[in-house]
Design a protein around this nucleic acid. Structure first.
Lengths: 188, 188
DNA sequence: CACCATTTTAGCACTTGGTACTAATATCAG
DNA sequence: CTGATATTAGTACCAAGTGCTAAAATGGTG
């Protein structure tokens, strides 16, 4: 049974969305039309040819890969830092950060931003988290911009330990509070 | 100036490693040799042609993308779960998880695994982390396999609160302990 | 039913970025 | 100088297209 032009084109879009690695020939046989029809459809929908589709997937993710390495080091973007005193970072919450079920950001992203910031504010070669106490004050949703502020509370030189408090806010509402006890190997 | 065969092939590998999107023709002109030489080189080094290279990047990243959505939901692989009682998950630490400087895993990955597990063990629609206390007992390195075990300690039905302790080990050495106070909307 | 528009199919020349293969040159080392 | 290694050239062919022309099928409307 053949679809109408409209239905077929809709299906074509969905099919290629799911799997861009299909030749016109295979598409033609799955929709029971000629290759030329598929090509007309692609033109009307301005869908590029197989090779271009593959290339764009590859290029897109190649960029992502490059981008994810620096991101791996610090979660969130640091906008202000005064070493050993305080630091501020921003993290924009997207659909990727939230639970599908309820749209609320997963806790570990807030933790990651705060922990990254706690590490960054320490002016040292080596900084590791020793202990932390975390409170998730209020749920964060996709679209929210979290501003995290880390403040160095105290420093115990003998124990190589630094106490940092990170407070994260969304539009002046506190959403997260964390105390981090950081270990450091001080050279200074 | 022309390179020796060996040098050229080495450079070829590095060049394509950095950017797989180059045709033989461009390679030939950048190395000042003929296209045929490039093709011989590719054969000797068993480097596939441009389109295959692109395809493999695309395929790889397409899979990653698909994989990262479920992964986004749970960090680590759950290998055993007894709802509202206990659960176990595994996370293999790779180079991507560690600080470049010292090779030690960033704390938020351990937190993410533990927190994911705490969420998963709760047999409910909605589970959010309210508070947590975290201790990083011992540094974890690339290549380590973290086995996290979550145990439900207590449950306060009136407060919609559940207390969970997660202990993560690498080869029987405890590396991480976390207490999570979880919020839940119980229907049962 | 006839007619016209839309849709679908067919066919051919041409393009890119190759493979596979053969054959002719360079280049260099002993 | 000679033989081996390296490089270049050239041809036929392939996949997955584009671009174009033209024919056939289908559909709705008066």
């Amino acid at each position: 049974m053949k679809y109408t032009k409209k239905d077929r084109q809709q299906l074509l879009l969905e099919t290629l969305e799911k799997n861009p690695f299909i030749t016109d020939e295979k598409l033609a046989s799955t929709f029971n039309v000629s290759v030329q029809t598929i090509r007309l459809d692609r033109m009307e929908l301005s869908i590029p040819e197989l090779r271009e589709r593959i290339k764009s997937v590859a290029a897109h993710n190649f960029v992502e890969e490059v981008k994810s390495l620096p991101l791996n080091e610090i979660i969130g973007e640091i906008i202000d830092i005064d070493l050993d005193k305080q630091a501020i970072s921003i993290l924009d919450i997207t659909q990727d950060h939230v639970f599908a079920r309820n749209g609320i950001a997963r806790g570990h992203h807030l933790f990651a931003q705060a922990n990254s910031l706690a590490v960054a504010v320490i002016n040292d070669e080596l900084a590791l988290t020793r202990k932390s106490t975390i409170t998730f004050v209020k749920p964060v949703k996709a679209g929210d911009r979290i501003i995290a502020k880390a403040v160095v509370l105290s420093r115990d030189t003998e124990k190589n330990s630094t106490l940092i408090e990170v407070t994260s806010k969304v539009e002046n509402d506190t959403v997260f509070i964390g105390q981090f006890s950081m270990y450091r190997v001080t050279k200074s």
